[in-house]
């Protein structure tokens, strides 16, 4: 399991093209993912940020083949190491899952089976993808727990999930995902439940995973600090689409999309004066059953014009693409200005 797979550098590790996921519900079709395309290179860390409910988790879930909802319709293409995953047989998909592709889920509190000790759950995965004996797998599980910074791993391994704090559970899940040295790791808000020192340690672990095993990582997070710290590239999602995609310094220095501007403005400052109120984006995200015909951000956008009534295509340069009609001259120059006093929460 440990050797890196022979890979053709010309083929990206992951190529997603026009991925669409919709759910048929009693109240109409929910377009959770609405045409997502991107490439992920070898050893690359892609950060995905965006509105809650913009389809980040659903996209990752689609890549894992884990959308089981009978009302879900998945279209488009997801190529992993040149191999199409959509429509792949259950058996082959299973072999990839947990082995070549691993996933860390968003909600650590409920992610573990309540009736088994965490050790047993890690061992289960190791035994599935490696030839380790139960004893050896157990030792490896202790090592993994240690690697993710769990205190007293020999104790914790025999505990049940409810006996661990949220952060500890999350680290158990991370340990599981790391256990088979995946080529691609999908991490859905892996550090949200963790304190900043452990978060820093986990990010180090992700870097190490890339360094030692050449893994690529997709990291969904709400924490812009984490993105700035670890991601090579950033994709910003809004209402089921990637609205901006750039390498990290560019995204923070010269973002092009008004939604990205709003996001960056909303970050509470960690030093300097505390604003009386945080700035945030006007209005609420659109209902995914009734997306506006043109740019889905239009109802909340201060810069909208008649041009925005048709869906803006992805434009820009190869390493900085944006789905917005604003011309280069119309884009905002400096983003990180002090937060202003606007707010829209009715009270």
């Amino acid at each position: 399991m440990t050797e890196a797979t022979a890979t053709d550098p010309a083929v990206p590790l992951l190529a997603v093209d026009n991925l669409r996921v919709s759910f048929r519900t009693a109240r109409g079709t929910v377009r959770a993912v609405d045409g997502v395309s991107f490439r992920l290179g070898h050893r690359e860390i892609l950060g995905i940020v965006g509105e809650s409910g913009s389809g980040k988790s659903v996209s990752l879930m689609a890549m894992m083949g884990l959308i089981n909802d009978p009302n879900a319709v998945i279209e488009g293409s997801i190529k992993f190491q040149g191999r199409e995953l959509i429509g792949l047989g259950a058996r082959e998909m299973r072999r990839l899952r947990g082995g070549r592709i691993a996933m860390i889920f968003q909600d650590p509190m409920t992610a573990l089976t309540p009736v088994y000790t965490v050790g047993r759950q890690i061992v289960e995965q190791l035994r599935l993808h490696t030839d380790l004996s139960t004893g050896a797998a157990r030792n490896r599980a202790v090592e993994l727990l240690e690697a993710v910074g769990i205190p007293g791993p020999k104790d914790v391994i025999d505990r049940y999930p409810h006996q661990l704090s949220g952060g500890m559970r999350q680290r158990v899940v991370i340990a599981m995902a790391l256990s088979c040295n995946p080529a691609l790791m999908l991490a859905d808000e892996p550090t949200t439940a963790l304190d900043v020192t452990v978060q820093a340690a986990i990010l180090d672990l992700v870097r190490k995973l890339r360094k030692d095993f050449g893994s690529s990582v997709i990291l969904v997070t709400h924490n812009m600090g984490v993105v700035a710290e670890i991601a090579d590239k950033v994709a910003v999602m809004y209402a089921g689409r990637i609205v901006e995609h750039a390498d990290t310094p560019t995204m923070f220095r010269t973002p092009w999309h008004p939604y990205t501007w709003g996001l960056l403005d909303s970050i509470p400052p960690i030093s300097g004066a505390r604003p009386r109120r945080l700035s945030s984006i006007q209005g609420a995200p659109p209902s995914l059953q009734r997306l506006p015909p043109g740019c889905s951000f239009a109802p909340r956008c201060q810069y909208r014009s008649r041009r925005c009534a048709v869906k803006p295509p992805m434009i820009g340069e190869p390493d900085h693409r944006v789905a917005c009609v604003l011309e280069p001259g119309e884009r905002r120059e400096i983003v990180r200005k002090p937060a202003q006093q606007n707010d829209e929460i009715p009270s």
Binding site: E51, E189, T192, H222, L263, S266, S280, D343, E344, S347
Partner: peptide
């Protein structure tokens, strides 16, 4: 607010 994106987080903090 740990599950919220920064813009909603800002709204909820303000809230």
């Amino acid at each position: 607010v740990s599950a919220l994106d920064v813009s909603v987080q800002a709204q909820v903090v303000n809230l």
